[in-house]
Design a protein around this nucleic acid. Structure first.
Length: 423
RNA sequence: AGAGAGGUGGCCGAGUGGCUUAAGGCGCACGCUUGGAAAGCGUGUAUACGGUAACGUAUCGAGGGUUCGAAUCCCUUCCUCUCUGCCA
């Protein structure tokens, strides 16, 4: 959520930046400013009436004490009309505040100056391309066939138990998955991130704090009886740990990493793009979250990008980094770098990580602030990224490491797996 | 799940209708004192919104209500603790 005070000062610049998302924001920004003006005027009026009521009440109190009941009665009469007026104004204030809020909820984050304008993924900028695409044998196959061939992932079994998009990992497949989780967590904690284990179900306030609610309600599984949501990413519970906090500047940055299963309803899309591990309703992910001083968030984002790149480098997977264009940017992000691994057998790029700076957009909703050295309370910057999402990394490994003898295990994972080949 | 107790500032804790503008203490900051430190003394110490400011308004878990006036009374709800039950 954008800050009204900043919209007041930067309306033109904001409208221009939002054009990068293909959005003409001038109208809505004007509506916001108008609602804000009404709100302030209403509050000023209400405050004046309340102040008068307060002082009258005090007078009545002293009059009663001195036994002057008659005079107190006169004043009592006066409060009636004031109370009436305050009720009306209070209602007006509530309405206009709510109207203002709902306007603000519809405005996405302001794209960072580095973000290129553009409509869709075709306008994304590649900022890095690394690793050699392996030359595979003639009869190389996509991961869902490999999964069957070596009996390590069973998609049909998942359908039987739950439905499509809930695979069952088995034997060396399950072990490889666990190895990846442990390896990712080790890399993240070695880089200074504190490991967390968090709830997989969150309440409405949490979903709201990170921006999944109220808009993207349909993307989350909802447990009706208890009114809880299954998390679509660890970002939700981890970031909400700090919801409403006021931290000291010296405590920043706060850095967390957490492994969780993630649950996404994901409407639409069929065919090869959702085959196998490409898109699931339940998948595993290791997330990194940073809460930063605003002055440091740009540098922190670069550090996160380097960190994720280093992991893919160690796994020896061919990958590229894309700076998302305005049209492809998520609602809450100000800048996002996507990591894609090349899946040789499918001949396509698979997104394995998304690293974003939300600047103050989430912090404003979360009411997550810090006390700066000048004694003022300011909103922090929040950042997060996958480090990394499991299924597509798994797909990349299976496909790129396949040989006629079986699937080799990347060297860094062998200590975690306890074997060096799936065959 | 049943019975009981309770939620007050950074923390502890007083407070059953109006000198509460939330006592007192701890902690923290600054000052005095000291050769230096501790102790002692003094001053200050929440958040949000509105206002250039002085200041005003709101906030005692949350939401309603009664009243001229609510931390205090009433209703609803959430949470915590103790005991009992159940359970990995």
């Amino acid at each position: 959520m954008l800050q009204v005070q900043l919209i007041r000062d930067h309306k033109e610049a904001y409208a221009k930046a939002l054009e990068k998302r293909g959005m003409d924001a001038t109208k809505i920004l004007n509506q916001v400013l108008k609602a804000d003006e009404t709100r302030r005027a209403t509050q000023t009026k209400l405050d004046e009436i309340l102040a008068e009521l307060n002082s009258l009440s005090k007078e009545i109190g002293t009059l009663f004490k001195s036994g002057n009941a008659a005079e107190a009665g006169v004043l009592k009469e006066k409060t009636g009309t004031l109370k009436e007026a305050s009720k009306t104004l209070d209602e007006q204030l509530k309405n206009v505040s709510q109207a203002l809020e709902s306007l603000l909820y519809t405005i996405p984050n302001i794209p960072n100056e580095l973000v290129p304008s553009g409509m869709d993924e075709n306008d994304n900028q590649q900022t890095l391309r690394e690793g050699d695409i392996p030359v595979l044998a003639e009869d190389s196959i996509p991961h869902w066939e490999l999964a069957k061939k070596y009996d390590i992932i069973d998609f049909e079994l998942g359908v039987k138990i739950t439905g499509a998009g809930f695979p069952v990992f088995k034997g060396k497949g399950a072990r490889l998955q666990r190895a990846l989780i442990a390896y990712f967590l080790d890399k993240n904690t070695a880089a200074g991130y504190t490991e967390y284990q968090v709830p997989l179900l969150v309440n409405e306030a949490s979903g709201f704090g990170t921006g999944q609610l109220p808009d993207k309600e349909g993307q989350m599984y909802h447990v009706g009886v208890d009114d809880l949501y299954l998390i679509p990413t660890a970002e939700v519970p981890v970031t909400n740990i700090f919801r409403g906090n006021l931290v000291q500047a010296a405590e920043l940055p706060i850095t967390c990493t957490s492994y969780t299963p993630c649950f996404r309803r994901e409407a639409g899309s069929y065919g090869a793009h959702v085959r196998g591990l490409n898109r699931l309703h339940q998948f595993d992910k290791v997330e990194i979250v940073r809460i930063e001083h605003p002055d440091n968030s740009t540098k922190a984002l670069e550090g996160m990008v380097d960190h994720v790149a280093e992991i893919l480098r160690e796994l020896k997977l061919p990958f590229r980094i894309l700076r998302l264009c305005g049209g492809d940017l998520s609602f809450t992000a100000s800048i996002t770098y996507d990591f894609e691994v090349f899946s040789t057998a499918q001949d396509r790029w698979l997104e394995v990580s998304s690293v974003s700076n939300f600047e103050t957009f989430q912090a404003n909703r979360l009411k997550l602030r810090f006390k700066d050295t000048d004694g003022k309370n300011k909103l922090v910057h929040t950042l997060n990224g996958s480090s990394l999402a499991l299924p597509r990394v798994m797909a990349g490994i299976l496909e790129n490491y396949q040989t006629p003898q079986g699937i080799k295990i990347p060297e860094v994972l062998i200590p975690y797996c306890g074997f060096d080949m799936i065959n």
